[in-house]
């Protein structure tokens, strides 16, 4: 644990943004005495508008680790960066009278807008599918509960698959099956990726510890993602003072058009 804190201190110094470390919270399985702790150097990430995606590193440590079991790889860690919860609608086009039209749609209860996962091994080797799905661990286990009236239940499976497929192809959902590595006895490093189109808002870094396929405990830290720069200012202006923004847009158009007619006047 001391080593972990030292590392975090080092990271904070390097980034020159000394964010405070928030005490993690989580549930645990009392059968085991191991403890899982994670740390990130900052609780806020400011990204500029030309952000093209980046990796962040999460450090963690397992206390009271059984070294023999660690050496044979009995411990597994899953680290996921879960984006803000958003209600999401999936629509499907169908051919109607020769043209492609949105026909069916299903809305889902809030799901993480982004999900970036990294683990010591592929998930199917870590724990049973039932255990993973009950804890919403992994892209295929994120709970996708339809909200409101569901016209034709037989479509649900296809729509869930499509949602996961589109989220993955747009880079919002991704996984690295070997992104967590132990760098010393009990100390590990996890790389999770922030995609270029990462949604702003409150994200959650969630880490789960398994021992021989059994759940030990999990812990999480909040991570706020904010965008900076002129573009973000414009976005906020447009949403918070939309009337003034509309007026400014019109004035800009009037001035541009008028200036051109003055500059290019022939006489």
């Amino acid at each position: 644990m001391r080593l972990l804190l030292a590392l975090i201190g080092l990271l904070a110094l390097q980034s020159a943004a000394a964010g405070q470390i928030i005490e993690p919270a989580g549930s645990r399985n009392d059968k085991f005495r191991e403890r899982l702790d994670i740390g990130i150097s900052t609780n806020e990430i400011a990204i500029s508008s030309d952000f093209a995606g980046a990796g962040i590193t999460v450090f963690g440590a397992i206390d009271d680790v059984d070294e023999l079991l660690l050496q044979i790889g009995a411990y597994d860690v899953v680290v996921a960066l879960e984006g803000p919860m958003r209600t999401t609608t999936v629509r499907r086009k169908e051919r109607v009278a020769g043209i492609w039209v949105n026909r069916h749609s299903i809305s889902f209860e809030p799901i993480p807008a982004s999900y970036s996962m990294s683990s010591t091994r592929p998930l199917e080797n870590i724990a049973s599918p039932m255990d993973l799905s009950s804890r919403d661990i992994g892209i295929n286990n994120i709970r996708l509960a339809p909200s409101g009236g569901l016209g034709d239940g037989s479509l649900l499976g296809d729509f869930r698959d499509a949602l996961r497929r589109i989220k993955r192809s747009s880079g919002l959902y991704q996984r690295v099956p070997d992104g967590v590595e132990f760098i010393s006895k009990s100390l590990f490093r996890a790389s999770v990726f922030l995609p270029a189109n990462i949604p702003v808002g409150l994200h959650k870094v969630r880490a789960v510890l398994y021992k021989n396929g059994e759940y030990v405990m999990e812990t999480s830290l909040p991570l706020r993602v904010v965008k900076t720069g002129l573009e973000q200012f414009t976005y906020n202006f447009a949403h918070q003072y939309s009337f003034a923004y509309g007026i400014v847009s019109v004035l800009l158009a009037l001035v541009t058009g008028w200036l051109a007619s003055v500059v290019f006047r022939k006489d």
């Binding site: 051919r95 492609w100 499509a162 989220k167």
Partner: peptide
């Protein structure tokens, strides 16, 4: 008229 590459769309 042309068949779309992806018939599903996601709105968040």
């Amino acid at each position: 008229i042309a068949p779309p590459a992806e018939i599903y769309s996601v709105i968040t």
